[in-house]
């Protein structure tokens, strides 16, 4: 029985292998749901609520794509992936896209044959210290004990940073964020270092967050973004421009509050009209209908709304926009024009 299931699956696979060409859009539409890879839980980015509904910043991207392609923001099948399984899940076709705070790096883009379609969060490695330490810059941390996750790029970044600044530190190796939190609170280390968004989330869970602070230095570049498989450019375009639509919508002042009005009829701003499909037929170039972007924006709001709702300053995590502000506000978000 067990063997036969295995053999059966292989045989079935053999029959269908020929048909499974790189037509992700067609597959998704036929299936009626989008398989979206997310984390096994990261505060603010992806987590289920008490009813099992997924929410978070990365989840918002999945829902926007589902809304654009399928017209239903809830038609997403969330597949939890770990750091080890995420890339094979994507490469094998188990998921259609991965929105799992994954850093865009050279080797992942080229060697692993993935296509990063954009950046939805500019992260970087930061430091958290107890306020009573009285330190205001990471360069004053000479001789500090640092809690650090072993085997990660953060470990290497940290060594580089301290060496370039010619100061010494004593590493306290830890395995997981949960362990780090306990060690740091127990005073086993003076400093905890990991991605700044993670630090903010960790700090938010403390009993008295005000007694701890994040240092201003960010010592690495961690551009996080959704990615798809190499080789299906049509599908890559859809995910890329859905993300761009969310970013452009904020820049153009289109939000979930006014999208019904703006999307109903062509308005004064031609770019808004093109974006929302009231003018021109941009959607048809990707094999979608005219108001694909309008649905994506209506799903969870534009980029700014998603940010504020999940990780922004009014949430317990309380991240400032910083680099993730629109280019017009001094940030790095810059969507190519919809034309």
């Amino acid at each position: 029985m067990k063997h036969s299931v295995l053999l059966g699956a292989i045989t079935v696979a053999g029959f269908t292998a020929g048909a499974a060409a790189a037509d992700t859009l067609g597959d998704v539409q036929e299936r009626g749901t989008l398989n979206c890879g997310v984390t096994t839980g990261l505060v603010g980015f992806a987590a289920p609520d008490a009813n099992g509904e997924w929410e978070g910043f990365d989840v918002g991207v999945c829902r926007a794509v589902a809304a654009a392609v399928l017209g239903d923001a809830s038609a997403v099948n969330f597949v939890t992936t770990t750091g080890q399984t995420r890339f094979t899940a994507l490469a094998s076709g188990e998921i259609d896209m991965l929105a799992r705070n994954t850093t865009w790096t050279f080797s992942r883009d080229t060697d692993l044959a993935f296509e990063f379609v954009g950046i939805n969060y500019y992260d970087g490695q930061g430091f958290m210290i107890p306020r009573e330490l009285g330190v205001s810059s990471a360069k004053d941390l000479d001789g500090a004990t640092v809690c650090i996750q072993t085997g990660t790029t953060t470990e290497l970044n940290l060594a580089d940073f301290f060496r370039t600044n010619n100061i010494s530190y004593e590493p306290v190796p830890i395995e997981t964020n949960a362990e780090a939190q306990q060690q740091y609170l127990a005073g086993a280390c003076d400093v905890y270092t990991t991605d700044a968004s993670g630090l903010a989330a960790t700090r938010a869970s403390f009993e008295s967050p005000d007694e701890h602070m994040l240092l201003p230095e960010i010592i690495s570049k961690e551009p996080l973004g959704p990615l798809v498989r190499h080789g299906d450019h049509e599908w890559g375009d859809i995910v890329r421009w859905t993300l761009n639509a969310l970013i452009a919508a904020e820049e153009l002042g289109v939000s979930s509050a006014n999208i019904a009005d703006l999307g109903a009829a062509a308005g004064e701003n031609p770019e808004v009209n093109r974006l929302l499909g009231t003018e021109g037929e941009l959607g048809s170039y990707m094999g979608l209908d005219a108001d694909w972007a309008a649905r994506a924006i209506a799903a969870g709001g534009n980029y700014g709304e998603l940010f504020e709702k999940n990780i922004g300053e009014n949430t317990p995590i309380g991240l400032a926009r910083g680099l993730n502000a629109q280019w017009t506000d001094g940030g790095l978000l810059y969507s190519p024009p919809f034309r």
């Binding site: 699956a9 292989i10 269908t16 292998a17 499974a20 399984t85 899940a89 094998s92 076709g93 188990e94």
Partner: peptide
């Protein structure tokens, strides 16, 4: 992981 590589894509 490995079975994913051995089985044809789309399985």
């Amino acid at each position: 992981l490995l079975l994913n590589y051995f089985l044809p894509p789309g399985t």
